[in-house]
Amino acid sequence: MSQTITIDGQEIPYEEGQTIMDAAIAANIYIPHLCHNPEYEPHGSCKLCTVKVNGRNCSACTFPAMQGQDIINHSDDLEHDRKRITQMLFVEGNHFCPACEKTGNCQLQGIAYYLDMHDNHFPHFFANREMDASHPDILIDHNRCIFCNLCVRASQEKDHKNVFAISGRGINKCLIINSKSGKLKDSELDINDCAAHICPTGAILIKRTGYQVPIGQRTYDQHKIDEISLAKEHKHHD
């Protein structure tokens, strides 16, 4: 007898050891997320995947699926919270989409479009962040880092290199690079590494590729992030 949970009234099966996110993706249900990627250990930091489990808020990417859970994924309250979280991510960094190569392919932007976010609501931090263009093939613009930890995880889990880490707390939090100079050019990062391609925003970019696809014809110009995400991640689950 298979075990089940219920998401927005729909009963879906789960396997022992799966998180709510795993079960949802396997059942082709989209729960908004930024820091989660099924190929890596869950991190639970962006909180966009917050769902109500038996009346209590939980991160779907880290919370285990358990028999009989009644889960709300889409409600006005949750969508409102998700919009506010996304707006906080926008004001915490410096996200000037018209000046960013990743525009149209950026998951942060994709989430904002999906949530029908038109403004940033909060006062902007205008944080003073650096750019590291020292590497011949890869550029880091810290202005756009949302500290999702995906590059850290990719470098550790897939590339077995440990190039990245997050250092400091609060406003001083920063993505740091494992090299003597602290510069990307002196690290072990290579253009073929998973960590060089995993960034959901425009913080880690491959040089000389940014405008290969014209603005207006890019991923989230054409499709909503729920379609794209499920097409990619549901397949990964199979």
Partner: peptide, 18 residues
């Protein structure tokens, strides 16, 4: 009504803020 990126988040002129 805030019209366009600059009215909404400062836009390109705000890139001088740092």
């Amino acid at each position: 009504v805030a019209v366009g990126a600059c009215a909404i988040n400062g836009g390109l002129p705000a890139m001088r803020n740092h």
